[in-house]
Computed example of a mutant assay.
Amino acid sequence: MATIPWLVDVLRSAGVQVVVEGDWLNRMRPGSFDPIGVLWHHTASTSSATNPHPALNICINGRPDLAGPLCQALVDYHGVFHVISAGRCNHAGVSRGSGPIPAGDGNTLMIGWEIDYNGVDQEMTAAQYNASIAATAAVLTRLGKDASHARGHRETSTTGKIDPSFIDLNVMRADVAAKMAGGTAWSSIVDNSTAGRFTASANWGVSSYSGQRYGADYRYADPVAASDPAWYRFAVPAAGNYRVDAWWPANSGYNSAAPYIVATTTGNRTVTVDQRVTGGQWRTLGTFALPTGDANRVAVSRWTTAPGLVIADAVRLTRV
């Protein structure tokens, strides 16, 4: 059975903070282990600044129904990697196949990160996400694999797993690819509260009702058959292709066909999204050709016949 005794050194070389948990080199499950990818999970435990790794003991020792270790590393609230095992772990179960990862024994095929957050009313912290991106990029580089070999458990599970919640896995892979390419691609976020970068009429109210919001608050307005967009202004550094991601809090009373307008090099493009679902995370609207310059580039429009409040929260551009 193969092992990955290089894991700690690779993580630390990537700038990831590491805590070694006991005899990690010899703590493993019996069976084959020949990893070709990295699998992201969430633990379903509620972590916090004062209780950053509530699931650590379970990940090391297992549960009554599943023997430990349950992952190669747990990622705590602060983004610290607690390295548990250099070998096979019970984290993936049977894989149905996803991307380049074939169907088969997921515990053989993939290294697992358990990111410690509950995934129901708690999303992963920025520290957890950034550390997991850096770690995944470093490990895939060591394995000689590209970013498509980073998967989420919900993509490979045969039993309906939902983890990791509140992230777009395509965005995750794009961020891993950028990291593997030698750095971070140009990216900029404009929130509804970003000074000088967001404009909206007085018809757009301000709310902090939803805990899924980006930042302190977000804007909302009733749908109307009129042009009254909320605009996001970006200083695009060079003409090229940019991925446009949007963040909104979801609620059953929000709009099912909220229009986003992207001002591209060839004119405005409109993408509609259902703001009743998939809130509290970055969702990709698409990749668009944008011109250079500092101008209004993305808008949320009120012009929709669908019922429910239209939400304007945050938008992100990333050079691809």
Rank of each mutant, 00 (worst) to 15 (best):
T159Q: 06
L309P: 06
I162M: 09
Y242P: 04
T194H: 10
D105C: 10
N118E: 15
W282I: 15
L39F: 01
G253Q: 11
R27E: 13
A67M: 11
G79K: 06
Y254T: 15
A312I: 01
A67R: 06
Y254I: 15
G182K: 02
V16C: 10
S256N: 08
V244A: 06
V94S: 08
C71K: 02
T264E: 12
Y214G: 05
A250Y: 06
Y232S: 11
V75D: 00
V206R: 00
S157Q: 07
T108Y: 04
G31W: 09
M172V: 14
P35S: 05
A225C: 06
D9F: 03
I162Y: 02
A246D: 06
A127H: 03
S95D: 06
V18S: 03
A14R: 01
G37W: 04
T50N: 07
A238P: 00
A246C: 10
V310D: 01
S301K: 06
C71R: 03
D146F: 03
S165K: 03
G293F: 07
G308K: 00
V315Y: 00
S256P: 09
E123K: 11
I115V: 15
Y117H: 09
P259M: 11
T158M: 11
V176I: 15
G205W: 04
K179H: 07
G286L: 12
N118H: 07
T156Y: 03
Y129M: 14
G211A: 10
D228K: 02
